[in-house]
Amino acid sequence: MRVAKEVRDDRTVLSIQEDRIDAHNSGELKDLVLKTLEGGTKNVVIDLARVQFIDSSGLGALLSGYKNATLRSSGFALAGLQPRVRSMFELTRLHRVFDIYPSLQLALSA
C-alpha cells in the first residue's frame, strides 16, 4: 500500500495514496498505523481524500488503529472521506465513533 507519511507539528499524517482499501491491502494499513503509534506519536491523522472505496476489512483496519490509539492515549482522526467511503461509516454507525473532518486542513487546524 502506498502511504505518504508526514509529521506536522505534533501530528503524524498518513495520506493514503490508493483509490481502494480492501482485503488485499487493509492488513498493511493496520500494520502501518500500529507501527506509527508504536513509534511514540501522540496524534495520528489518516487522510482518506484519495480513497474512493473501502470495504469491511478496511473499516476493521481503521478500527484497530482507533482502539490502539485510545489505549495509548493518542489522538486518532480521519479526514477527507469521499461520499462512498462516508456511507460505509454511516451504515455501521462508525461515524459516531471516529473523529472525522471534511478535509486534512480542517483536521490539522482542530
Binding site: 470495504d55 469491511s56 476489512s57 451504515l91
Partner: peptide, 11 residues
C-alpha cells in the same frame, strides 16, 4: 462493540 471483523455480510 467495535469489533474489527464481522461486517461483510451485513454490508
Amino acid at each position: 462493540e467495535l469489533r474489527e471483523r464481522g461486517r461483510g455480510i451485513f454490508f
